[in-house]
Design a protein around this nucleic acid. Structure first.
Lengths: 251, 251
DNA sequence: AGTACATTGCGTCATAATAACACATTTGAA
DNA sequence: TTCAAATGTGTTATTATGACGCAATGTACT
């Protein structure tokens, strides 16, 4: 609870927060987990504070697990946001008013905050979004239809997506975003959605299989319109190896 | 002065610092600007604190300008370090003892600190390393001969170099590390030094010129042994364009 | 002055990666 | 039964890459 944190703020790193951009993939859409706070018209990224005796990475994992219930997911720090105007006094005071905390006692919250951005890739179907309380709404929202966000959260989200796009060229993705069994067209849609551009079906197949991280299963997807596509799974060992060594070395 | 900052710590963001990994290139060596603090056996990265009314990027620029005297340089945030054990109490107390500040008054410094890492690429010859005071030594040190560093500064340095290596595949570099006029072999040495591997002379020339950011000058380098190599300069417009759009798109 | 040697500039060639496209197959729906 | 939409498996031309060859240039040494 935010109120508890503010009242026991000596147990938390001052002026520093964490915000998570949690990506999922469903219905051919790249979705982001967003929170609607009752006291604001805007939505926000799931975030949290850093216990004084915890690594920042650990604090980020806590936020993620708390919101998704999923463990062992892909989580990566991508940038730290510290513009002086990023959190205005006004927003903090709104929160205090809502929580019925006096301005003096809530000073910890209205001080200047720097936030560390993490992005996560999770399996949409395994995720059960959890709201922290009754008034809070937490929802998967298509990244193309993100509503107005509080503070600089839009900027954080954009930067996360931009980072994800870049990292697509440096490492394989999909293991964390797709179910265990999936089809090549599904994987391609994921790539197309993240990159926001069409790729050639046949060239994609060749390139993705050449990486050597896919295992073709002796099974076809059922209950589909048109020709049933083959199912694949990731070869976790090879996947991890490529993750570690990177792809597209360049030089 | 650190003492002033501690005494006026209400003007600074608490528990948050900045550390800069400043790279330069000279004598075919990738060098890092390091500081020797009198009260410690170890060296450290140039760093600083964040004025409560300044963007973190601005604070990083201030650190950089203050140490190098160079302006308009390449400066990029690459990671934030926040392990709980990264700054031990012991180190902070040493500093306080050296500065003759009572433990109680110096509590601001011995609290838990998270640090934001920036790396910079500067022109070695245009840089005049500046020490903050008489007792402090600041020096260019070959990245292969870095001595013991305080706290987790070695980890920060390693991560900066690793980031630089990755970014070499995503963008052109050299504009900030080399003098205005340079030779292809010099540029190749820079790449080889950063990547820590040999590249083929002829293939390097082809690949680097194909990027389209180099202008061949009608001039040869003088006072050199053996055949005089041609001089080149960067085409700033095209360089910036490639910087913006990136290279090696992959997908 | 002549020669050896290191280094540069400009090539070639075989192979791999990429982009663009053709055609047959499978399946649900008209 | 036929059509439309999607999948599976190719082909071909172009480009990029990796591994070399060789002549030109300038220093250093005899």
């Amino acid at each position: 609870m935010l109120k508890d944190i503010i009242e026991n703020n000596q147990n938390y790193q001052p002026g520093l927060s964490i915000d998570c951009v949690i990506f999922g993939f469903h219905d051919n859409q790249l979705k982001v987990l967003l929170i609607k706070i009752p006291h604001s018209k805007s939505w926000s990224l799931p975030g949290g504070f850093i216990p004084i005796d915890q690594d920042i990475d650990t604090a980020a994992v806590t936020v993620l697990n708390g919101r998704t219930g999923v463990e062992g997911i892909f989580l990566r720090q991508f940038a730290t946001f510290g513009k002086i105007k990023r959190n205005d006094q006004h927003f903090g005071k709104e929160v205090l008013e809502y929580l019925k905390i006096e301005e003096e006692k809530g000073k910890w919250l209205t001080q200047r905050f720097v936030t560390i951005g993490y992005y996560a890739l999770v399996d949409f179907l395994k995720t059960i979004p959890k709201s922290a309380n009754k008034e809070e709404v937490i929802e998967w929202i298509d990244h193309k239809e993100v509503p107005e966000l509080i503070l600089d959260h839009k900027e954080i989200l954009d930067k996360a997506l931009q980072t994800l796009r870049t990292e697509l060229n440096l490492m394989p993705i999909g293991y964390n975003l797709l179910p265990e069994k999936f089809t090549i067209p599904e994987l391609q849609k994921l790539y197309e959605t993240i990159l926001d551009k069409k790729l050639d079906r046949r060239n994609f197949l060749r390139k993705i299989t050449n990486i050597g991280i896919l295992t073709k299963l002796d099974e076809k997807k059922s209950n589909v319109a048109h020709k049933a596509p083959n199912l694949y799974s990731f070869d976790k060992d090879k996947y991890d190896e490529v993750l570690k060594n990177g792809l597209n070395q360049g030089w």
